[in-house]
Design a protein around this nucleic acid. Structure first.
Length: 859
DNA sequence: TTCAGCTTT
DNA sequence: TCCCAAAGCTGAA
């Protein structure tokens, strides 16, 4: 927003002078002069931790400058001449491609938030006011700016500059509402306009202008409406009747500047003087706008003001870079145009300070200044030098700027690349509170991600300590994360590592943020769906398939008999048991929804057997890419390559069918967690057979975290008694409990399904065949489970083959049809749940448990 | 490629 | 008592 128009124009060696800006201090006006403002700010900040950190950052910039100057000193004249030739060649090419045909407009609302607030409360118009809080201001009105009160300044400092300053809290809903009205107008000039924020947008009005030429005068005629200030009630549409004279008291347009020129009397800057033939005389309250770009933009601004009683400034130029610079030129409530010819562009660029150019900020300005570059002319003259000292991207950018070039087509941003949330607070030093906060952030972020249907693989934790030092720590996991639990599982490990890094000192934080990036593309998602539904026969419908998909799937399945997988049969049996055992008890273990969830509702849409034969659809189980038109050999080779590329990891990356094995859950978390609080959990097998299925399990010191789709179950192990823990776990799962279970008071009280879980040495129940094993020895038990699993998958694959006509074989043995070849078998190793995620502190130390290797390949 | 920090808006 | 969100760049590993 208006941070741009508040961009400091004068560079400074002082870390704080950047808060200075235009201080127009008109004669007779109340306000402060520059020195006074500087002094007040300095007094208010000097010695603070923030100040110390700013000085530190300043030092770092100085070091960068020194480095670049050293590099410069090493350059020979021949290097520079060589570079000159290259750069000039490039400049020539850029010149050749210069496009002056588009008419790009950058529109920026004046002091937007402040103006909206003043519109709501006209009393504020006569007072210095700002929008924000004591910690930070978003913007200020022009009266407050005379005191040096500016955007991005903390409120408490602003108060020192201007004790009478009124600080109004932000109200985004209100700003969004007004923004919507403004955007409706933008859309009439360019339906593909690009909003940058609530108060700023780029428009390409080239097409509009062409069309405009054919418009009759009537279409360019607007009646000036009265603007009666009411709370949040802007003026009627511009063409409405019943207007009042501008001189009347109620007609307070524009809202922002009582001393600014009224719209129609506005002093047009010399460059933007319209062709006298172009503008037509207003008659009474009507005004007719001409057909030129300037007239169209004036009309747009007029309509914005009429509709919202807020003013906007605009820049008109052949490209986005120039348009943006222009919109700042006659701010507030003005516009500026650069005619569409090369000379006009070069004239405009000539003395333009580089700092005015979007993309060149405080640091870049200082670096360039150290090299003697302050204007765009300097930028052009030093082009060879810059090409040797800066990265390619940077010097290309500099060259473009110095030629007055910029993007000529307005492109909406591509797909979002990350999503984050962060919070600033007064110091938090207790680890417990930090984890709690981290969870809260994960929760918020998960909700936001859910709204946009995003899932990513990289979780970044941002921490700012009380010394204002910012740290970011990222962790990329092999599985997709999107739920609170999934994000938290990664984030909390990063946090833990950071807490431990400063131990025994506490980590003293003032900000924490969580970000998720590395989003799966639409294609990935599709393939992900394809592979998971292929491999998973028991995922609750809403977790993987949309309702529509599910319906379609079911319809497509209709001609085929409902097939029960080995696992499903076992599950169904357990369900039955569960239901029977819970009859008559309060708090039934499984809801009807749960029951539904145990039946195959999310199968891969199956084409008929013939179809399958005709159109082999090889989806690689590793990279999830559909490998169409490949022959078997190529496909297997592809999988082998994928496997060799794919990082070894915990079970979380396994396709869902393999996740069945996760129920063989060891409570030993990589060895370091030997102090698992609970009672006998250490190195013990926790066999969990919940009525719902396919959970990811994560155990840390105190928490067992079971994740399934959007559901996250957390069981605080610390607060579970060893006797009841298995029940706690199974109960939670049986009820699909989503709440965080904490403390005994929150434990589920209903009668537990007695057979679904077991803990400890006395009862080990095989999660596959569901029978109790007469052993307390872990190895023996694991062996049994392995045998069961292999048996199970074999049966299931056979069934699959019968039902789909697709031939599958187990790589560890011969294929069951006798037609397979083991020579080029591809292997998909299902890993034991040693670790479920990467611990940032020991990223490389992933646990790979032996045994239970399922090798399968598709044929 | 990934990560961490920085810059910019 | 000095914000928040997102993107892009850079240098290092």
């Amino acid at each position: 927003m208006d941070q741009q128009d508040e961009k400091e124009t004068a560079p400074s060696n002082d870390a704080f002078q950047y808060r200075m800006g235009l201080n127009d201090n008109k004669a007779g006006m109340e306000g402060l002069d520059k020195e006074k403002i500087n002094k007040i700010i300095m007094d208010a900040t000097k010695g603070s931790r923030f100040y110390e950190n700013e000085l530190k950052k300043d030092q770092q910039v100085k070091q960068r400058i020194e480095k670049i100057l050293q590099q410069k000193a090493l350059l020979t004249s021949s290097q520079i001449s060589k570079a000159q030739i290259q750069v000039d060649r490039m400049a020539l090419e850029l010149e050749r491609r210069r496009d002056l045909t588009r008419v790009i407009v950058h529109v920026d609302m004046d002091a937007f938030y402040a103006a909206v607030e003043m519109r709501s409360n006209p009393e504020l118009k006569e007072k210095p006011m700002a929008v924000g809080s004591m910690s930070m201001l978003s913007t200020s009105n022009y009266l407050a700016r005379r005191f040096g009160v500016r955007a991005a300044m903390p409120g408490f400092i602003a108060k020192k500059l201007c004790p009478n300053l009124i600080i109004v809290p932000l109200n985004f809903d209100k700003y969004r509402e007004v923004s919507k009205e403004v955007r409706e107008i933008f859309a009439e000039y360019d339906p593909n306009f690009l909003p940058l924020s609530l108060d700023e947008a780029y428009l390409d009005i080239t097409d509009h202008l062409e069309e405009r030429l054919t418009w009759p005068e009537e279409r360019r005629r607007y009646v000036k409406a009265s603007i009666v200030q009411k709370d949040d009630s802007p003026a009627g549409v511009a063409t409405s009747t019943g207007t009042c004279e501008p001189e009347q008291d109620q007609c307070t347009s524009p809202v922002l500047f009582e001393d600014s020129p009224s719209f129609l009397n506005e002093q047009t800057p010399p460059q933007s003087l319209p062709d006298p033939a172009d503008i037509e005389e207003p008659t009474e309250n009507a005004v007719v706008f001409g057909t030129s770009a300037e007239e169209a933009v004036k009309e747009m601004r007029f309509r914005i003001e009429q509709k919202t009683s807020l003013t906007a400034s605009a820049g008109i130029a052949p490209n986005m870079m120039l348009a943006k610079v222009c919109s700042d030129k006659n701010k507030p409530n003005g516009q500026y145009v650069i005619p569409h010819d090369r000379q006009a562009v070069m004239d405009f660029i000539k003395d333009l300070p580089i700092r005015k150019v979007p993309g060149i900020g405080k640091v870049t300005e200082k670096m360039l200044q150290a090299l003697g570059v302050t204007t765009c002319t300097d930028l052009y003259q030093q082009r060879a030098l810059l090409s040797l000292l800066f990265s390619e991207i940077s010097w290309h950018n500099f060259l473009n700027i110095s030629l007055g070039l910029g993007s000529t087509h307005i492109e909406k941003d591509g797909e979002r690349k990350s999503m984050s949330t962060e919070r600033t607070f007064s110091e938090i030093s207790s680890a417990e509170e930090q984890y709690e906060l981290c969870r809260e952030l994960c929760k918020d972020l998960a909700e936001d991600l859910h709204k946009e249907g995003l899932k990513g693989r990289t979780v970044t934790l941002k921490l700012k300590n009380v010394k204002f030092e910012v740290k970011t720590r990222a962790s990329t996991v092999s599985h997709i994360v999107c739920t609170e639990g999934e994000i938290f599982c990664v984030a909390k490990d990063i946090l833990k590592a950071e807490i431990e890094a400063v131990s025994p000192e506490p980590l003293r934080l003032r900000l924490m943020g969580v970000r998720v990036s590395g989003f799966t593309s639409e294609e990935d998602k599709k393939h992900q769906k394809s592979i998971t539904s292929f491999l998973c026969t028991n995922k609750p419908a809403n977790k993987v398939c949309s309702d529509a998909t599910e319906k379609a799937v079911q319809e497509r399945q209709a001609p085929y008999p409902q097939r029960e997988s080995f696992f499903n049969q076992k599950r169904a049996a357990r369900q039955q048991e569960l239901l029977e055992s819970s009859v008559g008890t309060a708090g039934t273990a499984c809801t009807s929804k749960d029951q539904n969830a145990t039946f195959p509702v999310c199968e891969e849409p199956k084409a008929g057997a013939d179809d399958a034969k005709e159109k082999p659809d090889f989806t690689c189980p590793i990279c999830l890419m559909k490998q169409r038109d490949w022959d078997l050999e190529a496909f297997n080779k592809h999988i082998d390559e994928c496997l060799s590329k794919s990082p070894s990891s915990g079970f979380s990356e396994m396709p869902n069918k393999e996740k069945h094995f996760q129920r063989k859950l060891t409570a030993n978390n990589g060895g370091n967690e030997s102090d698992i609080h609970t009672n006998n959990l250490k190195n013990k097998m926790v066999s969990i057979t919940p009525c719902d299925d396919l959970y990811d399990f994560v155990i840390d010191k105190n928490t067992l975290c079971a994740i399934q789709g959007d559901q996250t179950l957390q069981i605080n192990l610390k607060e579970c008694s060893s006797k009841n823990m298995s029940q706690d776990i199974s109960n939670s799962m049986a009820l699909g409990k989503q709440a965080v279970l904490k403390g005994n008071d929150k434990h589920i009280k209903s009668t537990p399904p007695s057979t679904s879980a077991s803990v400890g040495e006395s009862t080990l129940i095989c999660p596959v065949c569901n029978t109790q094993q007469d052993t307390t020895d872990l190895t023996t038990f694991n062996r049994h489970v392995d045998i069961c699993l292999n048996k199970g998958i074999l049966e299931e694959l056979k069934e699959d083959e019968v039902n789909t006509g697709r031939s599958l074989a187990l790589g560890i043995h011969n294929d069951s049809t006798g037609k397979g070849s083991t020579s080029n078998k591809s292997t998909l190793r299902s890993k034991r749940p040693g670790t479920t995620h990467q611990n940032p502190a020991s990223k490389k130390a992933k646990t790979n448990c032996a045994g239970n290797t399922i090798e399968r390949f598709f044929k």
